[in-house]
Design a protein around this nucleic acid. Structure first.
Length: 603
RNA sequence: GGGGCUGUAGCUCAGCUGGAUAGAGCGACGGUUUCCUAAACCGUAGGUCGUGGGUUCGAGUCCCGCCAGCCCCGCCA
């Protein structure tokens, strides 16, 4: 309904301007807001839209708001194009203008949707016709080599994936980058440990399976924390690695390959596509970052470290905080890498991606870091004028005790186990239900439904919450099959499939569509809001808005399904309702697809 | 000490440029099945929107103070 509300807004704007001109002089109108303040009606009883402008204009126009509203409505009632779309508007309360779309208008929108594979969502256009479609880089997931993926990665991974899917659907050219932690000081201890524990691994190919990487990492970390000689060896190893020592590189590669295999299992399970481009990719660009910063006069040597001091960000003593780009020992750190990445991503090919927008999906704890890095990049002129860079933060994953789940030293829920458990619990639940209902299903069906439901539940639980707030991790809630959960949405689709299985074929042309029940109109109105929701998700990068919408849509459908017969109805109701079911199914599966959740015909 | 985020029903959370009587879900209580999958639907109960000011015709939403929780704060990422 985006195009409809845009049209109505234009008509309102014209009416509003005329009303204002009757009251004030031409020269005074510039100071007035001519925004009709058209929004979705706050309650269904009020209609489809409401215009709130009369209230805020009361003071400047020195007239009661209801009088202004009345004048606007009067103008609208003389506008044939408006009356073609809407019922005569009404005034309510202190001066709200309530607008209700004509049923023929809703039905014609509905018919358009039925034939539109994109469900009313337009393709993105470049601002200038000669320019290519904007390309967006989404940096998400980004686990660390030699560590297991845990719940924290889950958030970044599925939120990032969903945002990517929405932008792809809109037609952006999207590059999904997995900025894996495949470089840095932790490799010193890992390689040192590897060399001691499994020296053979470096001689032959595939000589060793590292097995549990978490255990391996823990062992190395523990030795690093407690053994001074090991610490020294680790630090030396970092230098060797960074200077390109072949044995060190081999060990490094071994660790990366092993991790990559583990990550890929999770990505396959979750159906996540990513292009791996780890931190190490930017190694050859790090010195360029320093040189560039030096040339632009931003670089300051402080306490032996090369820094850029931030503007407007002060620490203790009120002094500006630095971003350290080269440590006093000559080594680079994560800020250097992130800066190199920004520079590369915005630079034109071949030594860059030429992105018009870069989005980072990481936890909110990194907000300060990114703020600093973005500022430096800005001041170094690495971000083109039309381009933008954005940090999309999300809250912590907390346990049921409300405390952060540990990530560094053990006691982390492994993502693999978590997903497995979700699927197992879905399976137990399914088998129980089959038993209770006396249904007999084969094993492939049970396995497929369990996996789909289990994984969907995990994804949806995370996505359906506003990402800014902390996420309270709870197996029970995540896997609960009632309420605002993935299974509820999946079930609505299953019901629709059921109707088609029982012989639901439309027998009348769409021109005969008509609706009579309030449940039908409610469902129809919800269906037509899909394009607006996608617009919001694209702009706010909040997948939970889409979840909310899909939940409300499912509720509207379930009420319809419960109270209005489809197959038993006579035409034209029967065909009309079948069409409604079809669009509901299309919208739900499209919407869930954008959340990265596959759907089912039966469950 | 400085900065960021959060504080809405017993619990988990929505609340879109400030707008009409603050909404869901779970849990609790009660009802619905000759009918397309009851993983559903309908109803009841439950709120000084952390707190005190301010701006405004109008504040959960904007501004300031305070309280509480969590996170971050120069050579880890």
């Amino acid at each position: 309904m985006l195009s409809l509300s845009n049209s109505i807004e234009k008509m309102l704007r014209i009416a509003l301007k005329r009303v204002c001109l009757e009251v004030v002089e031409d020269s005074d109108i510039v100071g007035l807001s001519l925004d009709p303040q058209l929004v979705t009606a706050s309650k269904k009883e009020f209609g489809d839209f409401q215009a709130n402008c009369a209230l805020s204009l009361a003071k400047p126009l020195k007239k009661p708001p209801r009088e202004i509203a009345f004048a606007i409505v009067e103008k609208l009632q003389r506008d044939d194009s408006f009356l073609d779309l809407c019922e005569p508007p009404s005034i309510a309360g202190p001066g709200f203008i309530n607008i209700r779309l004509r049923t023929k208008c809703l039905i014609s929108e509905f018919i358009d949707r039925l034939e539109d594979k994109r469900l009313g969502v337009p393709f993105v256009e470049s601002k200038e016709s000669d320019k290519p479609i904007p390309s967006v880089i989404i940096d998400f997931s980004s686990p660390n080599i030699a560590k297991e993926m845990h719940v924290g990665h889950l958030r970044s991974t599925i939120i990032g994936d969903s945002i990517a899917r929405v932008l792809e659907f809109r037609g952006y050219s999207v590059l999904r980058l997995n900025h894996v932690g495949d470089w840095g000081t932790q490799f010193g201890m890992l390689i040192t440990h590897l060399k001691e524990v499994a020296p053979n691994a470096l001689e032959k190919v595939n000589a060793i399976d590292l097995g549990d990487l978490v255990a391996f990492y823990r062992e190395a970390k523990q030795r690093f924390d407690n053994d001074l000689a090991f610490q020294k060896a680790s630090r030396d190893e970092v230098v060797k690695l960074q200077s390109g020592n072949s044995l060190s590189l081999k060990a490094w590669k071994l660790l990366c390959d092993q991790s990559r295999k583990e990550f890929q299992k999770i990505y396959d399970l979750l159906d996540i596509n990513l292009t791996e481009r780890g931190e190490s990719f930017y190694n050859s660009y790090l010195q360029g970052v320093i040189d560039d910063l030096n040339d632009s006069g931003l670089l300051v040597l402080d306490d032996g470290a090369k820094c850029v001091f931030l503007q407007g960000v002060t620490g203790k003593d009120g002094k500006p905080l630095p971003v350290i780009v080269q440590k006093s020992d000559g080594g680079f750190n994560y800020s250097t890498t992130d800066l190199a990445a920004i520079r590369y991503r915005f630079s034109s090919p071949p030594d860059g991606d030429g992105a018009s927008s870069v989005i980072y999906v990481t936890d909110a704890g990194q907000a300060d870091h990114f703020l600093g890095v973005f500022q430096v990049a800005q001041r170094a002129n690495w971000i083109p004028p039309d381009a933008h860079v954005e940090h999309v933060p999300f809250g912590l994953v907390q346990g049921e005790d409300g405390k952060k789940l540990k990530t560094r030293s053990g006691d982390t829920v492994r993502l693999r186990d978590l997903l497995e458990q979700a699927v197992t619990r879905a399976e137990i639940d399914l088998r129980e239900r089959l038993k209770n209902e006396g249904r007999d299903e084969d094993e492939p069906f049970i396995k497929n439904v369990s996996q789909t439901v289990g994984l969907a539940a995990v994804k949806y639980a995370d996505l359906s919450q506003n990402r800014i707030t902390n996420y309270q991790f709870s197996f029970d809630k995540m896997l609960s099959l009632q309420g605002n959960t993935a299974p509820y949405l999946l079930y609505a689709l299953v019901r629709i499939s059921g109707i088609y299985r029982k012989g639901g074929a439309s027998t009348l042309p769409v021109t005969q569509i008509q609706f009579t029940e309030p449940q039908e109109w409610n469902l129809l109105r919800d269906l037509l809001k899909f394009d607006e929701v996608i617009f919001v998700v694209e702009n706010e990068l909040l997948p939970n808005r889409l979840c909310n919408y899909l939940f409300e849509l499912s509720q509207a459908f379930n009420r319809f399904y419960d109270q209005v017969p489809v197959l038993k109805a006579q035409d034209p109701q029967r065909s009309s309702r079948l069409a409604l079911c079809r669009l509901t199914a299309d919208t739900l599966s499209q919407g869930m697809g954008l959340l990265g959740i596959p759907t089912l015909e039966r469950m």
